[in-house]
Nucleic acid binder design. Sequence first.
DNA 1: ATTGTGATTGGGAGCGCTCCCAGTCACTGG
DNA 2: CCAGTGACTGGGAGCGCTCCCAATCACAAT
Lengths: 339, 339
Amino acid sequence: MKRWTLEDIGKLAGVSRSTVSRVINDQPHTSPAVRQRVEQVIRETGYQPNSAARSLASSQSRILGLVMPSILQSAFADPYYALIIQAISHACNQHDYTPSLFLFQSADEEAKMSQRLVGSGLIDGLIVTADTIDSQFVQMIQPYDIPFVQIGRPLRESAAFISYVDVDNEAGAYLAASHLIQQGYRRIGQLATLHNTAGHDRDAGFRRALLDRGLPIDESLIALSSFSEASGYQAMETLLHQEPDAVFAQSDAIALGAIRAIRDHDLRVPEDIAVVGFDDMPLAASASPPLTTVRQPIARTGKLAVESLLDIVQTSPQPARHIVLPVELVIRASSGAVS
Amino acid sequence: MKRWTLEDIGKLAGVSRSTVSRVINDQPHTSPAVRQRVEQVIRETGYQPNSAARSLASSQSRILGLVMPSILQSAFADPYYALIIQAISHACNQHDYTPSLFLFQSADEEAKMSQRLVGSGLIDGLIVTADTIDSQFVQMIQPYDIPFVQIGRPLRESAAFISYVDVDNEAGAYLAASHLIQQGYRRIGQLATLHNTAGHDRDAGFRRALLDRGLPIDESLIALSSFSEASGYQAMETLLHQEPDAVFAQSDAIALGAIRAIRDHDLRVPEDIAVVGFDDMPLAASASPPLTTVRQPIARTGKLAVESLLDIVQTSPQPARHIVLPVELVIRASSGAVS
DNA sequence: ATTGTGATTGGGAGCGCTCCCAGTCACTGG
DNA sequence: CCAGTGACTGGGAGCGCTCCCAATCACAAT
């Protein structure tokens, strides 16, 4: 299978390299007749432009980097990442961009790779799921003027200069907690992760809901967890000593772990303890009992991250944009509201 | 931050473009003194070779494609994929390659993208997690002589000409079933997925174990599932009617779903029904009860896939290589062998 | 018929690298 | 002392595209 070049195609179609290029790039100034002939030849030959040559000449690679810094290592198994990766991949496909993956296993690897990442022109832009460590990684890439957007609000004050896409974690947690309060629960616990801004914001929303309804905030009812099922299980076991009548888990994985812990201690959900999660993962609907949770639009998040990034890549520098997507409460059996 | 070129660096170090190139690519025929001076300048300037130019001149992109065809869509949330992606990413980092992700949402997208994928020279090689649909995708890319390896044995007879890395699914299932038999269970069910070769091989191992011990194979004790927790739950509910005393689930996710179903029906694991899974996902150890399962070396699978692929990329055509990794049975409480 | 206008078209000049060959240099052996 | 031998080094010639400008052409206006 021969490797065709623009010149070859031009020769076959009886036109010049330039004209073929115009046809391929959908540029104006080509007569319909010529265009058609060229397209015909391209179809017949199965010609594909060489991407290296394109990149070199245009200094655009049409590759986007998807960066997940080292901290996430353990949490990476959370289906959230699978979904966000899927969404980003799909958006890239649609825009004829290629997503490349950069998972760092250690700070060293992170430092070494990020140099190469931004200096070599390999990628046109970066999507960073940063969380806690944005400080390091983002600061490292700042000097290079490479376009990037974060998924999730950055922790640092530099946030104003950084474009990001996030969901309204605070409002979501507020909804979740309010719902529990409305159901009549009073000793409402929280399984919190303060590792990242999502965790902080959810914590803030939780507290605001309690305050709004005049409930006291009992710190002993807040147990720390990380974003995993196993960790949720452990945190819930601790929390059980405080005898909560309901619990807001900062993610569905945590909630599932909590439910397992509750049941292992011969208590029932929601009769003894109601549970609300966050994320609305596919598993939430089919859990036992079906999980009341805050649905966040993961697919939209990924899509918007790609599209914002492309906007920045394709136009000149522009002010940072901050997108915050709404969330909604999905009420199922685990919070006692439906039988 | 200036974009340096080889020529710039050469000028600064008082040598030619070619010499700098030799230093960067670790080629011989450069005096230590010169080499050192050049390296010094590179360090000071933070020079990074332009990858587009490199690719164009060398016709090597140092990018590897990771392809997950459309069928997997739904199953993608299985932590297996997160782990394999992590392993591949890590191996790529180590070898200075960049992994790019190609997830196809539909057969159309698959067809359209795969053209671009193999024709444009964007990638040096492909890792395909193919399963059922290998027939289509692999056949599509065969004509282009692009190097690729599959993860998981191909279904088709063309298997002999395709390089792959797989785990010994048959032996694993055999171990699992034998273990149950040895524990004294007799009505042993299976939650099977026949979607891919892994499923077929596990089924084969399961049957061989029963035959070897002189147990009858009762088809009504085999329920079909796909690779998800929810699906495992449903399949187990069906299987419950047959009153098995033990069940082999073809994946941990399925096993977890099965356990949930069993408990929802007020039965106990392992007292009423013993459960064995497959994969040894992180969750398996911390499940309730901890899950007896077949551990497969996912990280090694990914690493070997990358390394086999690089072997093919970097050397001339060679016979297809078939790697089958061993698995081991990890005995925990869910099979009744330990309290 | 002549000039002007805008839409098309062709080709030169790179993009920054690798590959290859020819040239340079210091030594060696005859 | 000179050809012969290596180890180095420099620079030409692309890789296959995009970008830009000059050239061409058809057609309308003068």
